[in-house]
């Protein structure tokens, strides 16, 4: 009984605590944390931009693992999870780019520059968005699952590139800073937000994956498969 309830409720628990953490973390970032020595108040953008960026890459890593599981087992559950993680990853990357631009404008003076990290992030967005686009073109379920997994795995090649490119090439975008080098009062709101985005992302993946399972089950019921294959995004 309790186990059943927990199974139904766990995404909601993640979602609620993620939301709570984001509210607390963002309030702290906006009011309590001091402005940074050189960047002033603009540095407060970091407390949301960096968590979104890190979690975008993490969610895409989930997608990569789910894709391998989907290829390996051929189970519908993993296919739904892969789709969900790719979509949430795309949404987070879609959020990561404008928040970065809103930081770049006051500090670098431009909205966009063809810096390696910005370029690789944009490519990542396009790569994973095409995975979702491809899904809507394929009607046979088994083939769609395989192709989703294959394209997700290949697209993942770009993710380590996004992460490491700032170290490999000298770049305008700064290298990952370690918490020791940053003021403790700025680290706390960032940490809270990082876990907030992660929990929220887990909630969204669970929700989207449940939706995809229903959709796939619905395809089985409905005689013409095309009716149910309309895909979001």
């Amino acid at each position: 009984m309790l186990k059943r309830a927990l199974k139904r409720l766990w995404p909601g628990i993640f979602g609620f605590s993620g939301l709570l953490m984001l509210l607390v973390g963002s309030t702290l970032a906006l009011s309590w944390a001091p402005p940074e020595r050189h960047m002033g108040d603009v540095s407060r953008i970091f407390s949301i931009h960096v968590p979104v960026a890190q979690n975008a890459l993490l969610v895409l890593l989930f997608a990569f693992c789910f894709a391998i599981a989907s290829l390996w087992t051929g189970r519908r559950r993993w296919d739904a999870a892969t789709t969900a993680a790719v979509e949430v990853g795309v949404v987070l990357t879609l959020l990561l780019l404008p928040t970065g631009m809103l930081w770049a404008r006051p500090t670098w003076g431009v909205w966009w520059t063809w810096d390696v990290r910005l370029t690789t992030s944009l490519i990542g967005l396009i790569l994973f968005a095409t995975v979702l686009a491809l899904r809507s073109f394929v009607e046979d379920e088994g083939r769609r699952a395989t192709w989703t997994a294959v394209t997700t795995i290949v697209a993942f090649v770009d993710v380590p590139l996004i992460y490491f490119c700032v170290r490999w090439w000298r770049s305008l975008h700064q290298v990952q800073s370690s918490p020791e080098t940053v003021d403790a009062m700025m680290v706390l709101p960032y940490r809270i937000n990082a876990f907030g985005v992660l929990f929220l992302a887990i909630y969204l993946i669970a929700l989207r994956s449940r939706l995809e399972m229903r959709r796939l089950a619905g395809e089985e019921v409905a005689p013409p498969p095309r009716l149910a294959s309309s895909t979001a995004l």
Binding site: L127, D158, L161
Partner: peptide, 23 residues
């Protein structure tokens, strides 16, 4: 090999291939 079975191959192949080939 994947897209050649689809009717929309002419769009999908560049869409999948070009971003991957950017590096």
């Amino acid at each position: 090999g994947m897209t050649s079975r689809l009717r929309s191959q002419d769009v999908l192949l560049p869409l999948l291939l070009y971003p991957l080939e950017v590096p």
